[in-house]
Design a protein around this nucleic acid. Structure first.
Lengths: 201, 201, 201, 201
DNA sequence: AATGAATGAGGCTTCATTCAT
DNA sequence: AATGAATGAAGCCTCATTCAT
């Protein structure tokens, strides 16, 4: 990419980033249309390719940017009241929602990365994603699971939570407009039930 | 479509069906390429359009076929040893795996329908899918949940199971080759844990 | 072509010939669709190519056939009551109409040859057409023009008649169904006026 | 269509318009190939669809353009020295020839519209053509026919002139290159003869 | 910096023609 | 003799990318 991108007015940068994320998130790499991004961002087609060599370059940039931003917000705003599993999970979701206020499609975009099947895209972006996953993993490493019943296998449990929350997120984004309250409500109800089910009784 | 399709040698029919399912499942309707299907099936491009009027016609056919086949296998082979929730769920997965032996991409293809965003495709196929979902729902209606602890909300529980199993399936299909043993192993372990967690203790 | 074509039942031969003529006449060589001919004639696609090597071979055959048939009918049925220009012209039209009863599209088909722009088609068929035109010309050579006013140039006059009658024919074929009475009526009225205008007064 | 088309260099606009007209005029709507137009005009295939949504949109535009241009030239340059039928007809032909110097295929293209059979094309373009025909008709309404002999039926006479001149035009266009002098020569000779034949003697 | 005109490969579909039965 | 399944080149159109301004 062309580093001069960052000399643009912040507002224009963000319009471009949001346009790209939205279209990538909703369509995946291969089906994402540059024309649609152009319309979404209100910027000329030529400009995209002035700053980003090609579609894959843009994709790489946007993935990187999204992850960096989430990491930043985590470092800054992350504050699980405790290191309880559920508090932690909820805190991560709160971070996502806060990111969403600046970059509305980051949560869906990150989630969409799992679905990506285009080999070129995966090649270019695999490492970034691994880093992000590692970050999340490391947070969970420090989580206190002492209240979990002995029959609860950590990996299965985490997988269950991850897949389900991803499902809820996608369903909420599939609605006309994303409703943060509705989303967080469903997440809390879900986590509560998982808490009840997992604890020693 | 041209009904003469069914006069073709079964093996050729299946090559075409499998080719179409694979490419649709992996790419979604809009991005699925007829050229790729043609290569997968080892037939000429012209032949597709000899039997199927157009892409949407082919899609409709394949969705219909997949669902009919699963329904058939369910009617024939479905045998939950009991009407226990977990036995039932496992029995459904066994049906999917048995279908998979004839049509390797049916399970992923059915799952992929949830992601479909193309309006034309949804229009054409919405009804079939609704029927399939209704069938699944009606099975779960007769399930015995008496052993569930009182704090287990049925809808949240089912959603959790559904999203997680979909996640496992997609992960397994993302591997080089789908390994039925690996998949069923993970499913069983998951369901066992959910059983432990949900029952009165 | 394969001469065994003539061993087919006459009725089938004619169905094929008429189908081809109709589609060629209405669409020109290049745009004429074999599928349409197949439907028109109720004969399988393979059969066309069994008897005629390719589209151009079929075209050649049909042009040849149409011209031969018209020539035959002329030799047989042609009987201008006199060698007056207008009687002769009318007699030719009567021949066309009689041909039309066996091969409904022959008159339009012959006319359509003038519009043909496809080089390959013209190449293949130019000679036949020249023969036909020569035949017509030779008939007119023997026509008595003694009643024409001196200012009437033979070539211009003939051209005027030819173009106008072609125009009338095409207009009549453009109607839902060709109405012989309507056509002959218009022709007679036209010729009468030309007669009035051309004679010494 | 994309109105930006008119911002292109006039020369390029005209190359595209002429390419389209030529191919449409010679082949009719359905058989006209965009590839051929592209080659004629020396521009890329993509560009056509940048300016014109699709083939029918291009066709509509070109018909409209041709008619507008002829109308304009008529308003500007039309000057029958008298309202005599033959002077008027000749004046119209002069207008066509003047248009031809900028857009060589307009006269043939307009003539070809009568042959058009494609329903979609007729639907899109019927109104424009009707307007053009009405314009021509209204000119002839004011023509003085007082010198016509009483046996001359106006409608038959006009039809004769129209069909014959169309025939001459098509013959001239069928030659290697259109020769204006040859064309106008034939037209004049033809009209003179018609004049002689139609007047009271 | 910014635009959008311009390109051409690739996508879906049609159609003349071939071939197995 | 007869069928129609099968092929692939060509048709219309889209879209990522380049380039002149």
């Amino acid at each position: 990419m062309n580093e001069k991108f960052f000399d643009l007015k912040k507002e224009k940068q963000d319009r471009m980033i949001n346009g790209a994320m939205k279209v990538f998130a909703l369509n995946g790499f291969a089906r994402a249309s540059t024309d649609e991004m152009v319309k979404e961002a209100g910027v000329s087609k030529g400009l995209w390719f002035h700053y980003f060599d090609n579609k894959i370059g843009l994709y790489t940039f946007v993935v990187d940017y999204a992850i960096k931003y989430v990491n930043m917000e985590m470092s800054a705003g992350f504050s699980a009241e405790s290191n309880d599993f559920f508090d932690t999970t909820l805190a991560i979701e709160k971070v996502k929602m806060s990111v969403r206020r600046s970059y509305p499609y980051v949560p869906l975009f990150l989630t969409s990365l799992d679905k990506e099947t285009n080999e070129e895209a995966l090649e270019a972006v695999g490492e970034y994603i691994a880093l992000y996953r590692e970050r999340i993993r490391s947070i969970y490493e420090q989580v206190d699971r002492s209240e979990f019943a002995p029959f609860v296998d950590e990996r299965i449990f985490d997988m269950t939570v991850a897949f389900t929350m991803k499902g809820i997120l996608e369903e909420e984004y599939a609605k006309e407009t994303f409703d943060e309250r509705s989303y967080m409500g469903r997440v809390k109800v879900f986590l509560n039930q998982m808490k009840e089910m997992s604890k020693v009784q």
